[in-house]
């Protein structure tokens, strides 16, 4: 293998990770500038001009978001002679919002999907906590990217020296897994499955390995700060190893109990967080061990043998 001047697996990955690791709250403008439904469109237009912004969320008396006034709405009010009327007459009432703990990857997909210039940001209780624009996101990413590049360069030497040669007859696969990267979730498991199929392993065994690796892969995506899923595909068994960088599992017994999950609402809305991940992985495995604790990483090791299965 030719030598590569920078670590081939880590560097682009780290940059990519930023959009999953950084939250909307890391990029948004806060506190937000807002207006009441009773204020005139003209007053809101002045506020936009003075603050150099292109949209103002409208909050009612209970400080709940009821609408948004954009430049477009101001132009329409001027056109229809409603510039001195209250904002409630002209404002956009169907407002698409982001949550402050969504990853920036979600926010960027919203900008692509809806083509709005900005999104109001709500917290867990539905209160307006900020406004985020595309340029806010780019700025936050650039700052974080700079920091990452510096860290990468200092770690480079030790990473290169840590590479060790694989055992003969065993195919070693390793995949960096990124927090909240639902776009690529499952790709590592698909590669492991492909390697097992290529060896001619029994389809029922391949399925068990696919279940274990997918559950462990998704656990890293959903619950960790990022990590690695690796597999050693041997002559008579496959060992799957999931290691992450934290934050660790405080209660191992609860984590192994079917139905227990710490996943939040938007993760559940994707069909994850059913509290079956670790129990599923254990059920399909011939050997299973879990090592974790608060403040450190989690390490799950499973072995699935091609013959003499437990089931």
């Amino acid at each position: 293998m030719p030598s590569v001047p920078i670590s081939p697996d880590a560097s682009p990955q780290v940059v990519l990770e930023l959009i999953y690791r950084l939250k909307v709250r890391d990029a948004m403008h806060s506190p937000p500038i807002w207006a009441s439904p009773g204020e005139s469109m003209r007053a809101i237009q002045y506020r936009m001009r003075d603050n150099r912004i292109t949209g103002v969320p409208i909050l009612d008396a209970d400080e709940r978001l009821v609408g948004l006034v954009s430049i477009q709405d101001v132009i329409e009010a001027l056109d229809k002679g409603r510039i001195d009327e209250p904002a409630s007459e002209t404002m956009t009432r169907t407002v698409i919002v982001l949550e402050d703990d969504m990853p920036l990857s979600f926010a960027t997909s919203y900008f692509n999907r809806y083509r709005f210039g900005r999104f109001p940001v709500l917290d867990r209780d539905g209160r307006l906590v900020g406004v985020v624009t595309a340029s806010d996101i780019i700025r936050a990413l650039l700052v974080a990217m700079n920091e990452e590049v510096q860290k990468l360069e200092s770690k480079l030497a030790e990473r290169l020296s840590a590479e060790n040669p694989p055992e003969a007859g065993v195919s070693q696969l390793a995949f960096p897994i990124v927090r909240f990267d639902f776009e690529n979730a499952g790709k590592a498991s698909a590669e492991i499955k492909k390697a097992l199929k290529a060896r001619g392993v029994d389809p029922a065994v391949v399925r068990r390995a696919a279940v274990a690796s997918y559950e462990l892969e998704l656990n890293i995506v959903i619950h960790s700060e990022g990590g690695t899923l690796s597999a050693a595909v041997g002559a008579d068994s496959v060992e799957i190893l999931a290691e992450d960088r934290g934050p660790g599992i405080p209660d191992l017994e609860a984590a192994m109990r079917e139905g227990f999950s710490t996943a939040n609402e938007w993760i559940r809305s994707l069909g994850f967080g059913a509290g079956m991940g670790l129990p599923n992985a254990k059920r399909v495995s011939d050997e299973f061990s879990l090592d974790s604790g608060p403040g450190r990483g989690t390490r799950v090791r499973t072995v699935i043998r091609y013959k003499g299965a437990t089931e």
């Binding site: 499952g186 559950e215 998704l218 994707l270 069909g271 059913a274 079956m276 599923n280």
Partner: peptide, 24 residues
């Protein structure tokens, strides 16, 4: 609609009936 449940219980070569419309 729970993907872990699908993983554990759905039959190979079968049909999955769900509302989870996304690439996962």
């Amino acid at each position: 609609d729970l993907l872990s449940d699908v993983m554990a219980n759905a039959k190979s070569e079968g049909v999955l009936v769900t509302i989870q419309a996304h690439k996962n």
